[in-house]
Amino acid sequence: MTILENPSRRGALKCLAYGGAGTLFTLTGGIVLATDLAQAATRKGQHANLGTPLFVQISDSHIGFAKDANPDVAATLKQSVALVNGLPRKPALILHTGDVTQLTKPAEFDMAAQILSDLAVSELHTVPGEHDVTDGGAVFMERFGKPSNNRGYYSFDSQGVHFIALINVLNFKPGGLGILGDDQLAWLKDDLSGRPSSQPIVVFAHMPLWTIYEPWGWGTGDAEQAFALLRRFGSVTVLNGHIHQIVSKVEGNITFHTARSTAFPQPTAGVGPGPGPLKVDAALLPGMLGITSIAYARHPAAATLTDTSLS
């Protein structure tokens, strides 16, 4: 079944339930259309027509983690790199949405950098996860701080799309969610002012920018102030990591999407004592890890999100 010919949100939500092996998302006029990846593969040509491959999202590599949930996270990151390098058309850039490392150790960053250097795509943009800044951010900024002047937030344009990197893992308030902070929000207001509403926007940050599960801190407390600035744009795609599973939502012209981890899955919101690594049967693991590739169709402007697992 494909619902591309018969777009409806109900149908889209039904297809979202397929999850597993990979789901193809398209965004047109604020409605997510989804079709099972396996079907997309059998309809060759149609996939390519959906848009120009623009970028790939990699997330939550957790280099340094070596417990039961995945004793070899370096190997699964390497597999993810191979997956990117094997795409039929090379994306222009890669976004890593944080938790590059497990414990903020320089040796972990070095190993991650070495593996990521095998990407056939040289442009890599990285925002930190809370695991990358347990020292307050110095080690991360030393390696990835240049584009943001060590602030962690910056923007750039690529192929007509405006990309905004945000940091929401520093200066947590006790008991709270992720936080952007007043300085970053003021910068965002400046960055967006005067920008035409027709320009597609991609926002990426580590922790979800919408509240998925408050008791586990899966959200960003002051993100609503950012969305107040973003709502006038016709196409906004918000990409996050942190929760190690795919969760999607569409609200008006804003599509929210969290990526799988390349390292290990986490439990569904609220299941178990907290958001720790989830041990699954070894045979099931590759299907729960993966990357997201995002494409844009120009006429009309539409974003296509494709999640690909390692299995």
């Binding site: 809370e130 006790p174 709270g176 801190g217």
Partner: peptide
């Protein structure tokens, strides 16, 4: 002295 886990700020 109030403290948190900076990875899981729900822990106070």
């Amino acid at each position: 002295f109030k403290y948190v886990c900076s990875i899981h700020p729900k822990m106070v």
